[in-house]
Design a protein around this nucleic acid. Structure first.
Lengths: 152, 152
DNA sequence: ATAAATGCAAATGGTTTGCGTATGT
DNA sequence: ACATACGCAAACCATTTGCATTTAT
């Protein structure tokens, strides 16, 4: 928490009460809140907070690698192959490639047991860089570091 | 394709030219089209097609289990735990439970190799029914079958 | 002092819905 | 004949953006 504040400053971000409040909610953890959830919790003790700031801050924290964002893409994709199989998705161009279902690794069942869930299946999304984007990246390799622009 | 037409009728759905056209696009497969993509392809030979119909049809095909829909939820969730770890998600109430990263199974590297992707990581989302929803379902067990309502 | 962050409101973009008309059964 | 599907336009909802104001540095 303190370390993060310093890291933010070091990376050129400002440490504001809003950002700390949002971070505090996230560190309470355990609930995988949506932006809306975070907003409600922060607004309770911080009435001036705006939803836009929550979104902006979440983006910053994501860029800093301090939080995980579940479910990156917003658009749905449809696949005539109805049997579950893993996908490999390019982080840059979002192209999607199928893998055979045989590529599904075994789930470590015992780790799931204590959740009490009845397991129905699973979704494996491998993240990577497609061949085309790898080449592109090499060409850009000599360019300036654009960390902040990477917020996308 | 023919079988599907019959299955649709058997299940009480109508077989329309639009639906067949959409299905044909999906069966061309290989590209994991978005709704928009499907629309464009179908509209090329079927100018009257509407985007709303594409969405409605995709929903029907999904309900029939004939296609896979990638990325079900639209809302993002944030997790203060930045190290990648699998999640168990309830299909009914969408509650999310963390698993320790130790639960990450080994990826079968050789299956990925031929994709040419540079693998950066992966996302494992286990789908199931949480304990609470399991109980609820048992109580509803005696109720009428509501397949079509399950479109959600 | 000044560049960056905030809060507001308007815009965006994918998806859904309501409704009157057309069509498969 | 009649319920279901269609096409259109409007509605929705999460997220983003522009901009004038405030604030951390």
């Amino acid at each position: 928490m303190q370390n993060l504040a310093e890291r933010m400053r070091a990376e050129g971000y400002r440490v504001t009460p809003q950002r700390m409040a949002i971070l505090r909610v996230l560190l309470r953890g355990a609930h995988h809140p949506t932006a809306e959830d975070v907003y409600r919790q922060v607004a309770a003790q911080f009435p001036m907070m705006s939803l836009a700031t929550v979104y902006k801050t979440l983006k910053v924290l994501g860029a800093l690698g301090e939080i995980t964002v579940l479910q990156m893409e917003s658009r749905k994709h449809y696949d005539a192959n109805a049997t579950p199989h893993p996908h490999v998705i390019c982080i840059k161009c979002h192209s999607i490639v199928d893998l055979p279902s045989a590529a599904m690794p075994e789930l470590p069942e015992q780790m799931l047991a204590h959740t009490g869930f009845r397991i129905l299946g699973y979704n494996l999304r491998v993240i990577g860089l497609c061949p085309k984007c790898q080449k592109q990246k090499q060409q850009e390799a000599s360019t300036v570091n654009q960390r902040k622009e990477n917020l996308e």
